[in-house]
Amino acid sequence: MYETVYHRATSTDDAVAKMAEAEDAKFVSGGMTLIPTMKQRLAAPSDLIDLRHIDAMKGIAIDGKKVTIGAATTHAEVASSSELADLCPAICNLAGHIGDPHVRHMGTIGGSIANNDPAADYPAAMIGLGAEIMTTKRTLPAEDFFVGMFETALEDDEIITAVSFTAPDKAAYSKFPNPASRYAMAGVFVAMNGGDARVAVTGAGSDGVFRHTGMEDALSSNWSADAVSDAEVDEGDMLSDLHGDARYRANLVKVMAKRAVAAAG
């Protein structure tokens, strides 16, 4: 790891101020991606500004069907929230299968979506749930937030503070993990809300997380696993690597979508 300077922020204002002072700083939350990347010498921020101790960024607030999750809330906290599970079990289940138990104790929802790894789980949930991403500067719909592989609309000095969404009528996430990394080779989040179906796909697409409108249309009129089977998944949009070619990934997208729909009930 290259040399770096660690700072612990006490508030988002403090974090932004520290960022302004530093040469080439990065915010770190759980650090479950950033620290390993720095260890590999693939990232070399001059400074690290730790957001993990900002209390205002933590916790899950539920107001009727509206859910707000602080950006520094860990995957383990989301997975084990019984209140949230009553309202939207899909996101708890998703959070409970990110990484491994140790990673879930550190990794946070804000960190995950800020990184926008094309095989990460949360981006699919955010898009599937039509969530809003709240930052120190603005509130963005998830679809505008995720720009491409590892790319988001975030500016360098902008911090995700929370995400918020309305719990859907039903939803589920089905993931086919990469046998080595256990990241998604195809992860499909489906949600139904007042007759509007959403299908968000992670892991499989060659340009990161995306919505599958064909499946959405089919599911909006007929919420069933069969409805998904007839949808087309374009192999040309799929990733291809040593773990599976585009054709296999296209198949996985369909199968995971079917299974998610069946699980959502």
């Binding site: 660690y6 730790d50 140790h102 550190m106």
Partner: peptide, 16 residues
């Protein structure tokens, strides 16, 4: 274990 929870000590700085 950090504050009672399992974590990977290779993926966190001592300062954190």
């Amino acid at each position: 274990h950090m504050d009672g929870k399992a974590i990977k000590s290779c993926s966190i700085l001592a300062a954190q």
